[in-house]
């Protein structure tokens, strides 16, 4: 059975989502209300999936994502957030979260997203595609860095991300571009992986420069 941990400092939300997930057949093995408790419990119970809120009393969702992944590297993180927190969501995704769902999503969408996340898929909602697309464009215009060149999207990846951001399903995109459903998924995964990899290189380099390594 897929094990889930719910991280949110809002008790009503935490309990509600936990109940939804239990009813849907997931095992909610832990809940947490802060970066610290989330990290400790993730290390102890190693959940398959963590549902992560963006506002915690002792740090951002990105902080929590990074430290939970460090404590339990096999865990996959699904960000649940209000739609107005775009910058925070982008940071969490760069830190390694593999999907993003708005809090107003239905119980059905939540169930599907947790199942897919546990399967290792990226939950690429239109909101996340718009964020990732914007981040690649921002990096393309930022001053070049010879040691760590900014990752770029292929034309095909850009097309796929734009379609996702405009709300087309993977099947619709496959039909429009004349490619397979699987290839669409691969393009989406690749765009996310390049972003996270570049972020890790950046962080590692920063750590070495600061003598923290």
């Amino acid at each position: 059975m897929t094990t889930v941990m719910v991280v949110d400092d809002h008790p009503m939300w935490r309990d509600g989502v936990g109940r939804d997930l239990t009813e849907a057949g997931f095992e909610v093995v832990a809940t947490a209300d802060s970066v610290r408790s989330a990290t400790e419990r993730a290390a102890a119970v190693r959940p398959d999936v963590v549902l992560m809120d963006m506002h915690l009393p002792d740090g951002s969702g990105a902080d929590a994502t990074a430290s939970v992944l460090q404590a339990s590297p096999a865990t996959r993180i699904l960000v649940l957030s209000a739609s107005s927190e775009r910058e925070d969501v982008l940071e969490a995704v760069k830190a390694g979260a593999s999907g993003y769902l708005v809090k107003s999503a239905s119980a059905e969408e939540l169930r599907e997203a947790v199942t897919a996340t546990a399967d290792g898929q990226a939950i690429f909602t239109p909101g996340l595609a718009g964020l990732v697309l914007g981040e690649y464009r921002r990096m393309a215009t930022a001053p070049a860095d010879a040691d760590n060149p900014a990752p770029t999207l292929t034309d095909r990846e850009t097309d796929v991300l734009r379609f996702v951001a405009k709300g087309l399903s993977a099947k619709q995109i496959a039909t429009r571009l004349g490619i397979s459903h699987r290839t669409v998924e691969n393009h989406v995964q690749a765009s996310l992986r390049k972003l996270q990899l570049s972020n890790r290189v950046e962080l590692a380099r920063y750590a070495i420069e600061q003598g923290l390594d």
């Binding site: 775009r86 969501v89 239109p126 909101g127 718009g130 914007g134 981040e135 921002r138």
Partner: peptide, 20 residues
């Protein structure tokens, strides 16, 4: 622009924008 649109749009519209 993103903030202005988000305020003006009905809640059931799916909205995507860059973070900056």
């Amino acid at each position: 622009l993103a903030a202005a649109l988000q305020r003006a749009l009905p809640a059931d519209v799916t909205f995507s924008a860059p973070a900056d």
